[in-house]
Amino acid sequence: MTNTQVTLSGLTLSNPVIPASGTFGYGYEFAEIYDINCLGSFSFKGTTREPRFGNEPPRIAETASGMLNAVGLQNPGIDKVISEELPKLRKVFRKPVVANISGFSIDEYAECCERIDKEEGVGLIEVNISCPNVHCGGMSFGTSPESAAEVTRAVKAVTSKPVYMKLSPNVTDIAAIAKACEDAGADGVSLINTLMGMRIDLRHRAPVLRNVTGGLSGPAVFPVALRMVWQVYEAVRIPIIGMGGVACAEDVIEMMLAGATAVEVGAANLVDPFASKKIVEELPRVMERLHIENLTDIIGGAHHG
């Protein structure tokens, strides 16, 4: 028998597979085609204080083995998320959900996290300080250890649930930022958000994305994400949720060997709406083949000495 259970700061998940924020909406589209309670959890769309339209279209571009998005945190705002989306979500998902929160000021992060912390169905708060698609906010908090720590402290002061800081790969030293979050009291870190990139339309001789740049995700980023999870694992003691290009059960194992306790699956859900379910189902078979009995045993298992 294989055991796929993992525990994130006291929150036990039946398996480590978590659809990533922004690629799973509030779960409904997927709940129409499969029972999403098979998932470890899922991280809902990044939520801000005010409702946001996001960036003008086009917001999506294709790349080799991946995609760019410049959605820019479109969401209905925290009030509606609490009053409408969460009650609706509870009907299709019975497990604790990961609440993904974004902001444009320290106050906004603190206010949104404080409010979402009180919601019963929320198991963990993922604080996005790494969105590359908004200006004056988002990623600007996640690119220096000082501001990352400042957001962490502000959020920790007003919450009781585990707080995971979601880190940007668009930095020179992600381990230093993870360490700063840990020192400021973060319960864990989530990484990576998307890598900044762009495409140019040859016929129009202009960027494909109206926002010019977008965030790269999908299998193209997997080795970069894995390397960063590895480096952060060496730098901190708090749990890591690893993500970036995960597309199959083997990728989950690889992320965990690098140091992740749980794994998020993003873009893969968009091209194959059954991707996360398939990974959950494949996982025990792949574990058996690799002679893994307890998944927790392999966390950081590729680090020796």
Partner: peptide
């Protein structure tokens, strides 16, 4: 519109 998913999950195609 340019689409990420085509089934409502990614907010890539909003107008």
């Amino acid at each position: 519109e340019r689409m990420g998913c085509g089934f409502g999950a990614c907010m890539g195609c909003t107008c």
